[in-house]
């Protein structure tokens, strides 16, 4: 790891004004494999991903702006109108043990509980988890100057793509989004609050937060330099809401899953599904809404048959690469099971 300066931000706005790049931008370089922006000043929260990237020589900032101590970014609070606000720096461990969140947003807490390891969950922040760089091994290899890092070539298409995307994967880059909590947050219609250097706050619907390669090959989300996440909002719970999350990996701990599914339903008194969000993880460059599946469930009573039809509809549109067709039956099963898990939950 290259040497760097260290500074603690006085406030979120202060941090936003000090930072010269996002980590993503600081990893971009037009040529060569060494990080281009050695003059970058980067914001560091839990640092779980950033320190790893720095150790691997993928980013070498001149200064880190630490925000981990800022009290205004911590904690979980219940809002007056229902719903919860989760400070950006709330750790995954704090979320995993929060009774209110467990009760109202099981999909989210299940996703958080299965992320990484206990040690990492004690340090990793929710915002940091959403902003972590993809696990693509070409992206994370200093020897492969790939498209997403500013190079001219995606190595995954002709290389080993067993862990890559099966959806929205033909626009130059086939990463899968690495955050599993993000799948649940997308299902649950969370909002992301941010603040900029000039103090301007904005609220971004999670529907608009993640960015596909077809829009921008170099970013996974809409956040840009000078802006940082302050909180994540979860909408008010309702007795009709159901949610569930399942993931499947090769290992049962500290392994980014091969596939993950988060679902959210609002099921009325007659058992009819009035709101449906089915989100796939490990499948696409962003957490991915399986709208074909949602259409089958929406307005129906969930049963074994339409759950399976929905799962198959989601998979019908997939475009697997040379090495990842196995994800089709895997995701199909997982969608089916997650729908049934949510539908039969209380």
């Amino acid at each position: 790891m290259e040497a760097f300066e260290w500074q603690q931000a006085a406030s979120p706005e202060n941090a936003a004004s000090l930072a010269t790049h996002t980590t993503t931008e600081a990893m971009l370089s037009a040529q060569g494999t060494r990080a281009a922006f050695t003059q970058a000043m980067l914001i560091k929260a839990g640092g779980v991903d950033l320190i790893g990237l720095m150790k691997d020589g993928l980013v070498s900032p001149v200064r880190l702006i630490d925000i981990n101590h800022l009290p205004e970014l911590q904690g979980i609070s219940e809002n007056a109108g229902g719903g919860f606000t989760i400070g950006a720096l709330t750790t995954l461990a704090q979320i995993a043990t929060h009774a209110g969140l467990m009760k109202h947003y099981p999909a989210f807490v299940q996703a958080v509980t299965t992320a990484a390891s206990p040690q990492i969950r004690n340090r990793a922040t929710l915002a940091g988890n959403l902003l972590q760089r993809p696990r693509c091994w070409y992206l994370r290899s200093a020897a492969h100057h790939c498209l997403r890092k500013g190079g001219e070539h995606c190595f995954a298409y002709a290389g080993d793509n067993r862990y890559h995307a099966i959806l929205a994967n033909h626009d130059g880059c086939a990463i899968v989004h690495p955050s599993t909590p993000a799948t649940a947050l997308l299902a649950l219609q969370a909002q992301i609050e941010s603040v900029s250097a000039n103090g301007v706050q904005r609220v971004i619907s999670i529907d608009d937060f993640f960015v596909l390669p077809s829009i921008d090959l170099h970013h996974e989300n809409v956040l840009r330099t000078g802006e940082l996440i302050t909180a994540i909002n979860l909408p008010a719970p309702h007795h009709t809401h159901r949610s569930a999350y399942l993931q499947l990996g090769e290992k049962t701990a500290f392994d980014w899953p091969l596939a993950a599914v988060a679902v959210f339903f609002a099921i009325d008194d007659k058992g009819i599904c009035q709101q449906t969000r089915i989100v796939l993880g490990g499948a696409a460059p962003t957490p991915w809404r399986a709208r074909e599946a949602e259409r089958i469930i929406e307005g129906s009573k969930i049963d074994q048959n339409n759950a399976r039809s929905a799962a198959e509809a989601a998979i019908a549109v997939a475009t697997p690469l040379s090495g990842n067709a196995y994800k089709l039956p895997l995701l199909c099963t997982l969608i089916n099971r997650t729908i049934m898990k949510a539908a039969t939950s209380e």
Binding site: Y138, F155, A158, G159
Partner: peptide
């Protein structure tokens, strides 16, 4: 796992 085109361990 070795990348077939660059010979690097992935």
């Amino acid at each position: 796992i070795i990348d077939p085109h660059t010979g690097w361990m992935l």
